[in-house]
Design a protein around this nucleic acid. Structure first.
Lengths: 121, 121
DNA sequence: ACGTTAATAGTAATCATTACTATAATGTCT
DNA sequence: AGACATTATAGTAATGATTACTATTAACGT
């Protein structure tokens, strides 16, 4: 049920948001259960934990690499179809002692709602 | 003093790490003071708050855009000199209703210490 | 039905950060 | 210098997301 709810939403909800959705179907589920199962699934690789912004972690049912656009105001995350032509070949030649495992590329901005709110000032 | 300490370190410390450094010179400084001043300075633009990874926020004395390499294990952040030839012109043409304010591009990996530790298993 | 194992609800603990409050430092004007 | 307003501070309390804990319940093979 947790996985279903995560897959149904186009955006990337927080654990509490998922909890509230599941609560409608399983009225006595515990928030801890949601956290635990999200954690298990992200460790198994079924879903992805987005460690990327703000105070709350968000979860993503799409595990393949893709671009996110993030509202710096409310934290909302959406997917982007665009490809920004990143020259990934250079990654292998970077001078560093780190063992590189991946990249993270996100676009920051104001979502329509937050942007409208800013205009009221 | 907070700003000095932040500028002296090559890596990007957390508020508590800065607090512990400053504590050596100002023994009765409060953690709240460190947080408040870091917040003021990042809002003024003197420093940068890195909202990017893990549970703790980190701070950066270099405000111009540059690449970070982040250890997914211990959270350590280092600067990278490389330029990855991102085609920024495409940013202006992205199809989205968001008002874009910037990008975030980071490289993830294991720092030498964490990587060595992994080998012991 | 019995015992073993794993998952859960509900609650308590943790940890980073923020808010609050009484006090101390600083500046200004006369 | 002295009276007053303004600001920053230390120290503590509160908040909020996440994790840990525990007693209970469900599932499953024999």
């Amino acid at each position: 049920m947790i996985l279903d709810k995560l897959r149904q939403t186009g955006f990337h909800p927080t654990a509490v948001e998922i909890y509230n959705e599941v609560l409608k179907h399983i009225p006595n589920i515990s928030l801890g259960t949601v956290y635990r199962n999200l954690d298990i699934m992200s460790k198994t690789g079924i879903i992805r934990k987005i460690e990327t912004c703000g105070d709350q972690k968000r979860y993503d049912a799409v595990t393949k690499d893709h671009l996110h656009i993030i509202c710096t105001c409310c934290g909302r995350i959406q997917d982007l179809e665009e490809d920004l032509d990143i020259n990934m070949n250079k990654l292998a030649n970077i001078e560093t002692e780190f063992k590189i495992t991946g990249v993270r590329f996100e676009i920051m901005g104001f979502c329509p709602e937050c942007d409208a709110e800013r205009d009221t000032f």
